Simulated assay, not measured.
Amino acid sequence: MEFTLYLDESGDHGLDRIDPGFPVFTLCGIMFSNPGYRQMKECLDNIKHHFWDDKEVIFHSRDIRKCNKEFSVLLDLEVKRQFYEKLNNCLKNGSYRVVSAVIDKIRHVQTYGRIADNPYEIALSFIIERSIFLLDEVKADPKTIKIVIEKRGRKEDQQLASHFEKIKVRGTGFVSRERIQHYDIKIEFRDKKENINGLQVSDLIAYPISNYIMYPERANPAFDLIADKFYLKGGKRYGLKKFP
């Protein structure tokens, strides 16, 4: 059985300059089976066709919130209401699981220093671990995982690919290399311009997760919408972890 894990981020993973107004880095993984992804793709494409008559519109969380670019149509409050109603329906009723990691960069630097491990690599290791836990519970064999990550730059992508290969060869503190290799995990980097709906879902969900971690007492209807999509184990939310 084939699964695809789409990864996108919220915030900057760099440690040199930390924005005190947004001091977290969130890496959000969305796990789809092939049927689940087809359902989500069709749902999102229908929205794009309905409002823009063009499936090439790319959903980007910041542009939607700011009503920028194509999303200037959302300045019309009735259009905005209809858009969010349809989008929320896709996210609420879709068949997927969320596995995400959030790095509090200020505490990370205070604890480990500015030459500490790359927050992106820490988050990726965690997400791979928890994704293995998740799929261990799926009664199907063999199982393959394709990890799709949005391109950031040649150097950054090469560093991340190198870290991924180390995980496959060495395993992690919680998952052995044999257990990882059993899943035949592959990684690929894709451009945002390719209009991949799975990456867009990850982008849309990453921002509410960041807000939930930074301001847990604030109303966060976007997070509440997908709260039951996180990977659970023994009643514990295994699909959301804050570091350190």
Rank of each mutant, 00 (worst) to 15 (best):
G153I: 14
E156H: 09
Q158L: 14
Q158N: 13
Q158F: 13
L160S: 04
A161P: 04
S162C: 05
S162M: 09
H163Y: 13
H163T: 08
H163F: 15
H163L: 06
F164T: 10
F164N: 06
E165D: 10
E165K: 10
R170V: 07
T172I: 15
R177C: 12
I180Q: 00
I180W: 04
Y183V: 04
D184Q: 15
D184I: 07
I187V: 15
D191E: 14
D191F: 06
K193D: 09
E194H: 06
N195R: 08
N195H: 09
N197V: 15
N197M: 12
N197F: 08
G198L: 03
L199V: 08
L199Y: 04
L204E: 01
I205K: 00
A206H: 01
P208H: 01
P208L: 03
P208E: 05
P208G: 03
S210F: 00
N211E: 15
N211Q: 11
N211W: 05
Y212K: 06
I213P: 09
P216I: 02
P216W: 11
A219K: 13
N220D: 12
N220S: 14
P221D: 10
P221A: 03
A222N: 11
F223M: 09
D224P: 04
I226W: 00
A227P: 02
A227L: 04
D228R: 12
D228H: 14
F230C: 04
Y231T: 03
L232S: 05
K233V: 02
G235Y: 04
K236T: 04
K236P: 00
Y238G: 00
